[in-house]
Design a protein around this nucleic acid. Structure first.
Lengths: 183, 183
DNA sequence: CAGTGATTTCAGAAATTTCTGAAATGTAAG
DNA sequence: CTTACATTTCAGAAATTTCTGAAATCACTG
């Protein structure tokens, strides 16, 4: 498979960005290629489109699968595995956020709780700082859990509303009547 | 400087997590150490607390400064530079989000716009996919820009309210009267 | 259940990133 | 201007990550 120059540029960009995210260049490129391909691709096709080794493709796909970022498809009369990304961009974003939370946030939250359980260590400042950090992370993950439940439509509306929502809350942090009365 | 076992564990954890984020172990450790230290620390102190080379400390601090994550302080009658993290956790989070956006999102947005400007490349699917991705990123960064403007107090309240806010929007995505009337 | 092709595994090679010590540069004080 | 630190730079060493080709495993098919 030969890439159009548009595909080429897109794929290369995601490869470079990959390192800024926590993933490697090849994984970024594979994902980008699947993302802009209208049809599912098999490992062989990816291998030659990106000019990498077959085994590298295999590892990259495995990595993407562990992130739940690609779906496996099968073509009638073809034994090979074909891969795609979900059509729904929101689904992709949800997955991405969920997985990053799992890998980047949750372990830290666990560790902080563990440290607090070890009880007073005679370092009041550090202890207070750790507690404060834990509380903040809990607040943010709690908010995230709520947002995760929302249907996409409502989420979109919420984002579009933007800061107009904040108008409902006065400076002291109390809610305006409009919000408290209803429900 | 010798670390208490609490400090030790905290610092090592952030070192390990560092690689899951885009930063390296040492940078994570330096930041963690500054974060749980009640007093500003100089490079020499950091160097021996973490058992790394003086030059490594210098590079790590430079990296943290480029992220705006540390502040430089000076102690009367001492020529050395002392470093701390802001007391306000919210300020830290805001900085972190802003910097990650700058490094991880903005370049991609620019690239996508650039690709669109290059005009029809005869690959309708890829073009549509790119446009869709650009729109989603614009929506999210737009929402972020709004949230960034809010005072911390309101932001906290908003997060605590959580999904109750979503009750204000009906399934079709239209706002409920309560929200539209008050303005 | 042998044969064929697809996929994965894995040890070492290649590439990249991180770290160090030595030298260079910067800076305040005398 | 010179001395006395403090900090930064930088080339090479060390460590880590990524990539490859060969071999192993897996799984259909006839």
């Amino acid at each position: 498979m030969t890439l159009t120059s548009l595909q080429q540029e897109f794929v290369l960009h995601f490869g470079e960005m990959g390192s800024r995210w926590g993933i490697n260049r090849t994984v970024g490129q594979i994902y980008a290629l699947l993302f802009i391909s209208s049809e599912p691709l098999n490992a062989e096709t990816i291998t030659d489109a990106l000019a990498i080794s077959r085994s590298n493709t295999s590892m990259g796909l495995k990595e993407l699968q562990s992130w739940n970022l690609v779906r496996l498809k099968h073509v009638q009369g073809d034994r090979r595995d074909y891969f795609t990304t979900p059509d729904d961009l929101w689904e992709i974003v949800r997955t991405l956020v969920a997985e990053r939370k799992k890998r980047e946030i949750d372990p830290t939250l666990t560790k902080l709780r563990e440290l607090e359980l070890q009880g007073p260590a005679g370092d009041d400042y550090a202890e207070a700082r750790i507690a404060e950090l834990r509380e903040m992370i809990e607040m943010m993950t709690g908010f995230y859990a709520e947002m995760e439940k929302l249907e996409t439509q409502r989420l979109v509306k919420l984002m579009t509303l933007g800061s107009r929502i904040a108008g409902l809350i006065d400076k002291t942090g109390a809610m305006f009547p409009a919000l408290t009365k209803r429900k």
